[in-house]
């Protein structure tokens, strides 16, 4: 079952085609990487999938809903309910502590729950730093905080735009480890990266060039990975992040 269907999507800025007739599908539970040179439209496609930007042409169907036809207000709700975002520049709120930053996502989604937020931070190895402000955290710690925030509402789809772009190797490993766990639990991940090592962790790599889909590479190591993904027993369906209890809203 396809969680996401991108059909003939184009994005036009003036006379620049940032995306040109791009189509691909992502199955539930799949881990997909998007690669391509700078300016090839990776962020653009991610923003359109995440409902943060609108396509000029084409349709994007997320979980059975055509989000290109939705109004701004509904897009906000779809983002809130279905998508977890991880940014290259972290984008943490600088006057809130790590745990409060995670709770902000809960706050806009449903109910802030400090225990659950702390548990999510523990999962990304940040339990000790939960009461620190972003300025007191290293880049790697900030990114892990971001990941905890993206996970907290059990999103159907996790979108990460160059999550390791600002990290050193050790921190990159930690982040990939977390992604692997999420994938094993049945999360659906789309990760934009410049880094071939990061892309190799995914089941498939979509390569963009000049806004066009150049090729889709299956990762041999995963074998017939798409079918491996648990269809109905997604990590949310199993009760979210396993040991961390049931999601409150779904």
């Amino acid at each position: 079952m396809n969680l996401l269907e991108v059909k003939n999507v184009s994005k036009i800025y003036g006379n620049l085609k940032a995306l040109d007739d791009v189509s691909f599908n992502v199955k539930k539970g799949e881990w997909v990487a998007i690669m391509g040179p700078s300016g090839s439209g990776k962020s653009t496609v991610m923003n359109i999938i995440g409902g943060m930007d609108t396509a000029s042409e084409g349709t994007v169907i997320l979980d059975g809903v055509d989000i290109t036809k939705e109004k701004d207000k509904n897009l906000t709700n779809i983002r809130r309910d279905k998508i977890g975002l991880i940014f290259q520049q972290f984008h943490l709120i600088n006057y809130l502590t790590a745990v409060e930053n995670v709770m902000v996502a809960q706050y806009y989604h449903s109910m802030p729950d400090e225990k659950e937020a702390l548990a999510a931070l523990e999962r990304v190895g940040l339990k000790e730093r939960a009461r620190h402000l972003p300025a007191q955290l290293s880049g790697g710690e900030q990114q892990r905080c971001c990941i905890a925030r993206a996970l907290i509402n059990y999103p159907a789809l996790i979108l990460a735009d160059e999550p390791t772009g600002n990290l050193d190797e050790a921190n990159e490993k930690k982040v990939l480890e977390i992604f692997k766990q999420l994938h094993d639990e049945g999360a659906t991940l789309i990760v934009v990266t410049h880094d071939i090592e990061v892309a190799e962790q995914a089941q498939r790599t979509i390569v963009l060039e000049h806004g066009r889909l150049a090729k889709i590479v299956e990762n041999e190591a995963f074998g017939d990975s798409g079918a491996n993904a648990p269809e109905e027993e997604g990590y949310a369906a199993k009760g979210g992040l396993g040991q961390y209890g049931k999601p409150k809203r779904r």
Partner: peptide, 16 residues
Amino acid sequence: RKEIGLKKALGASNGS
């Protein structure tokens, strides 16, 4: 502005 954009990205309504 960034903080506002982030809150929006997290699913906050304009109202909140």
